[in-house]
Design a protein around this nucleic acid. Sequence first.
DNA 1: TTTTATTTTCAATAATTATTGAAAATAAAG
DNA 2: CTTTATTTTCAATAATTATTGAAAATAAAA
Lengths: 169, 169
Amino acid sequence: MKYEEAREKFIQTWGAMGSNWGVSRTMSQIHAYLLTLTEDTTADEIMEGLGLSRGNVSMSLKALQEWGLVYKSYKAGERKEFFYAEKDIYRIAMQIAKERKKRELDPMIQVLEQLKDLKVEAKDKSEAEEFEKVIGDILSFAKKSDRVLSTFVLSEKSWFSALINKIFK
Amino acid sequence: MKYEEAREKFIQTWGAMGSNWGVSRTMSQIHAYLLTLTEDTTADEIMEGLGLSRGNVSMSLKALQEWGLVYKSYKAGERKEFFYAEKDIYRIAMQIAKERKKRELDPMIQVLEQLKDLKVEAKDKSEAEEFEKVIGDILSFAKKSDRVLSTFVLSEKSWFSALINKIFK
DNA sequence: TTTTATTTTCAATAATTATTGAAAATAAAG
DNA sequence: CTTTATTTTCAATAATTATTGAAAATAAAA
């Protein structure tokens, strides 16, 4: 395959992937685009390169920076802002895990804690018991997942190889 | 909190969660609804209980069965089909991981393999080199993830406690 | 068989989410 | 300051995705 073709396919594939992990399609296309560059680049070049509107590029870059997947830089004598991608795949995975924990796991645990203690009336007895068991199981699993993420993935620089070592050793 | 209120909140929360992991909102609402029941139930009851159309319930139940999150059953003398949820949270997580691996990770690896070997022309030299490195890194990570999932999570019955043990021991 | 109950399919529609583009805001240069 | 370059915001619109509901298909009962 020719380089230009491969690059285009990579951007499209990465874009489609992203939407499976909570990063919007445009965000991950921009991230993929930046991954292929050796030099920092401007919002205008991204607009041009991917055929997106100025507003969309601005909003997506902002979100990508919040996710810790893209950084901003400045060049002496240049008025425009420049951007570059986080390229370390382990760090990319870590950032996504961190952000998703914050947006999904933490709020889920909060809700489950609320649901744990019920006022049960006689008529609900057996259903409510079942419910308490289900909630308890899910909460316990959620907390364990939280612990794995917090103490391991999100804290270590080389979490992935450490994980692989632990698992397969 | 009263049981009925808690149950309602759980269904809504689980529904919102689901859409973060590739299971549609309606699918995970139905799954949540079934999680709260002690008896197998019919499509009609689900329609009634969640206020959904017949078609939607039919399609969602079909998809839930494909994901391995819901099972079908029959009762002697009853013409209708009955449904019940997978309630083991570790198995739920395992099924979701299995399905997502199939839909996301496996195709991603396929594409990356295609992109790995490039025909590079002189003008692309340095960009193409960078690209090969990026693709190589992502592919290596994807393959390692695939190995962890295949040999560990998807094969063991009690994968989660085994994982916790390995990580924290 | 035919009739009746039940489930599935899918085109039409609704709801949701993403994107645009132009105006407003910000910030550097003159 | 004023002008010009650049970035951000957000209401309008487009694109996508989910849902309905009725007709078709399936399957059990008569």
